[in-house]
Amino acid sequence: MATIQFDSAEERRSASLLGMWLFLATEVLFFGPLFFGYLRGRLAVHEAFVSGSHHIHFWLGTANTALLLTSSLTMALAVERAKLGRGVRLMLSLTAALGTAFLCIKAYEYASELGEAASARGGEAMFYFLYFAMTGVHALHLAIGIGLVAWLWLTARRYGERYSMPVEVTGLYWHFVDIVWVFLYPMFYLLERYNA
């Protein structure tokens, strides 16, 4: 066992949680240039961003936000149940299913927007670039999250009162990806909707 460095299971758990939080700090700064690039671009060519925003699907984006927020609920319940040692698989399945549904809708959106994005000029092209880059990086994170949840599902029998650290750590990551989307949603979908 590669855990000789720890004196106790609790020490191992707290080290892993701290490790994941530090990784999430890294992730915040990984997204940093994208968010700052967006802010600068939006203030520089505001009009183009607004008209770009009106070309993407309000209802699909809103539905996707609801899906992702719900998946955070099921993930939180999965952590709770992992500690009880029963029913964790159901919650993991729901979480992965909601995540996958999000990605399917996103893929449909991409497919329907690609033509318009390719013909966009000037600031609107920059808007689409940021839209694809930021939601793309987010989708990649989500796909990794789904992979992790699937792995938890396969190893679900190991988790119980004594040991549920991998579920907890994956949960943190999942919620973080959710938070990123919570900011992306208004940034891309909600610009001056009253003028649309």
């Binding site: 890294t26 700064l29 990984f30 994208l34 671009g41 520089a44 060519v45 000037g122 092209a125 670039f129």
Partner: peptide, 27 residues
């Protein structure tokens, strides 16, 4: 991580021809 994303943006801009550093697009 800031460097990682910044370099990714360079690579994307180079490959796609559009990006946030190009002044012609308001970058």
């Amino acid at each position: 991580p800031v460097l990682a994303m910044t370099l990714t943006l360079i690579a994307l801009e180079r490959l796609a021809g559009i990006g946030i550093f190009n002044p012609a697009l308001g970058g």
